[in-house]
Amino acid sequence: MRFSPAAAGRWVALTLVTILLTILAERVGVPSAALFVGLAVATVFALAKVGPAKVPSRASQAAQAVLGVEIGTLLDRDTLASLGTDWIPVVLVSLGTLLLSIGAGAALGLHRDLSATTGALALVAGGASGMVAIARDLGGDERVVAVVQYLRVLLVTASLPFVATVVFHADTGRGVGPADSGAPLWVDAVFILGCLAVGVPLARLIRLPAPALLGPLIVATVADLAGWTGGAEVPTLLLAAVYVVIGWQAGLRFTVESFRSIGRILPWATLLIVAIAVGCALLGLILVATTSVTPYEAYLATTPGGIYAVLALAAASDVNVTFVVAAQVLRVFLMLLIVPLFTRRRQRGD
């Protein structure tokens, strides 16, 4: 990509507007604010033809890799241990959610404006940012994936307080304090760079799909489960920057025609998102029947999206938070690990 003052000015304008609106969105509680604002601002800049041409591939790959580390650190030993003997029902319910997502994605892929791959990636119930990040690598339309995935997160997140208070009469007034990882920044940096240095080449060597995401994800997971992380994690500001880059990656590719075609898809996508949410709630009945959790805890554990909102709501309620955390993290992990493999296998079969 050639440098020019005009191109630099476009990047500066895009960055400043994104930072300002992300701060405002965070303050009013917009879910996945950095990803949403990055997507929205880049889309407006692209449609107005005042934005950069595209996100450089190296920046896109770096964002995927850091995101993989973040997801990998979620699945630690304490999280898995909290499931106890309930891990089999939780895994089965997570796989059921995966099947629901694949079925809904296949239905969305029947739309004349979409490919089957795009439909499948757009409705995966977990890891929205990861799916957007790797959509192009897997042959999908990242613009559609970004819009539909964010719509899923938005609908699920918006419905959480209503369902919690109206359906389950939950008390969500406990509140929680901020978490403290305790690791200095240099430990975070060494851990992240180590996961990237080992994970990306390894994933390419064994020919994993989306190697920039899955390689660091697998290495970070192994390190976390083995207790080798030293409490390291992805710093909040770096993670926000990653989400912004992923949002830009999709938003800058928008055109007026693609915007119109996605508008035609949204009613059908919304119906399918509601269907997935209802199906996951029914899967929660399996947890109620086979474990000691309450219906409210099962609902929180199987909600198909908005993981951070779910965890915040669980922490603010009188529920088994560790069970909800374990079930939600396992769902996201399985989605991001299995779906790229399934998509690549399907493409080879075609």
Rank of each mutant, 00 (worst) to 15 (best):
L193W: 03
A13I: 06
D188T: 05
D137P: 00
V278C: 11
L237K: 12
A42R: 04
A232G: 12
Y299K: 07
S261L: 13
A13G: 07
A212P: 02
H111D: 15
R2N: 14
A13H: 06
L214S: 01
T22R: 00
I246S: 04
L138Y: 03
A179M: 14
R331D: 08
H111A: 15
R345Y: 08
F191C: 07
W11P: 02
T291D: 08
G177T: 13
T255C: 14
V234W: 01
L202E: 03
R264I: 05
L74H: 09
S292Y: 12
G230E: 08
S57D: 15
A301P: 04
V132C: 12
T165P: 04
R331C: 09
L217A: 05
L80E: 00
G126V: 02
L121K: 05
A158F: 15
T221Y: 02
A289Q: 10
P5E: 11
T303G: 05
H169Y: 10
A220P: 00
G247M: 10
I218C: 07
L95S: 03
A120T: 11
V242M: 07
A301M: 12
Q61T: 07
P161F: 13
A133S: 14
Q149V: 01
R264D: 09
P235Y: 13
T291E: 09
P184E: 13
P178G: 14
P5G: 06
G194E: 05
L110I: 06
L98W: 00
A81W: 06
I206E: 10
G96A: 10
T18V: 08
A170K: 06
H169Q: 15
A34R: 01
L238Y: 02
V234G: 01
A232T: 10
T157N: 13
L313R: 00
P52Y: 08
T97N: 09
A189T: 14
K54M: 14
V288F: 08
F45A: 13
L47I: 02
G182N: 14
V66T: 03
M131Y: 05
A269M: 11
P52F: 07
P52M: 11
G103L: 15
W228K: 05
D141A: 09
D86L: 09
L110T: 06
G126D: 04
T291Y: 08
D141C: 11
G247I: 04
V256A: 15
